[in-house]
Design a protein around this nucleic acid. Sequence first.
DNA 1: CCAGTAACTGACTGATCAGTCAGTTATTCA
DNA 2: TGAATAACTGACTGATCAGTCAGTTACTGG
Lengths: 197, 197
Amino acid sequence: MRREEILRATAHLIEEHGIALLRVADVAVELDVSPALVVYHFQTKDALIAEALTWAAQQDLDRLALATGGEGSSRDRLFAALAWYAPTGSERGWRLWIENWAAGLREPALRQVGRELDLVWKESLTEIIQAGVAEGDFVTADARGAAWRITALLDGLAVQAIVHRGVVGREQLTAWSMQAVAAELGLDASLLSPGTP
Amino acid sequence: MRREEILRATAHLIEEHGIALLRVADVAVELDVSPALVVYHFQTKDALIAEALTWAAQQDLDRLALATGGEGSSRDRLFAALAWYAPTGSERGWRLWIENWAAGLREPALRQVGRELDLVWKESLTEIIQAGVAEGDFVTADARGAAWRITALLDGLAVQAIVHRGVVGREQLTAWSMQAVAAELGLDASLLSPGTP
DNA sequence: CCAGTAACTGACTGATCAGTCAGTTATTCA
DNA sequence: TGAATAACTGACTGATCAGTCAGTTACTGG
């Protein structure tokens, strides 16, 4: 469907140049159609932006479900989830979501999109942690709190990794993430990579 | 000096409406001068924005120096620093710096402003931690790492506190911050408020 | 008190762009 | 097949705004 191609192109352009610099004409050029077509489908630029971010959030959630839905151990599912989320891995749409934080300060509709994605992520992480605790893999008295603290740390590290790229190395960021996760979940340092027996 | 009034007004408007919506005319209205005067002093809007953020960063650094420069114990200096930085306290220019993260993705000049502030903050925090370790108040093998991890956590919590205001309570955010700081620096939970013997 | 300079203004312009509109092409389905 | 509808276009317009410019007012030091 054409609408979806437009959303994908829009999300891509926002990722690349930011919400502020997005022009309807650029989206049209990207798809080799007329600007009027973009307006025909979305009426206003603001609606286009909102839908593009919603679409991107849905894409992210689909990939999260895929990453964490496997039948492996809690440890494996945890590492899959972290690999997806952490700014040191395949890097999902981090730039998009940092944009979204700023835009969300003024636009409740955009804020809501990011918030929902954020909450679903934390819920998934909490669920994995709880499963791990039940199976005896992890130790924590507060799965939800651990999920929030881990997420906050990863968000903060993401700012370093994405905005201040190069100030500190990827390995360092990964090490800090893993250290925090290990501390929260009572893992020992030797268990910091997936697949270890 | 007039330049500084303009910078203050600009920073204030960015804080309120974001960089994207800043108009030269609004800055002029704020000060009851003509738009041409603003251009006279700063030549371009981009230069104005860059200088306003630099000015705001300098203000922040001055306040940081004030907060941490006291002659108290390491513990007191640490708490003063955290009270200044953490999004649960007096809230400095958090909205401004979240804006800056997004803007910094595209504009190296703006990225640099935020980066410098960030690095000075971490340096101050590291210095306080090292002093505390020397005095036997704190225990950590890696003061710099601790400072980075604490900062990352606080940045992540700031996104929750400022962008997603209301999803989780202030007391909760404070508790998590303090818990993380205590864990990093080998404090016990009873030492989580300043002034405790 | 006056010359030189800094601060400031009002009126303007040129570029940019979201969104409109009247019409054309493609698709569907009865 | 043909009528109805959806997808699409080119040409346009109206609003917005950063930045210009030719001047005026205020300040400062000699």
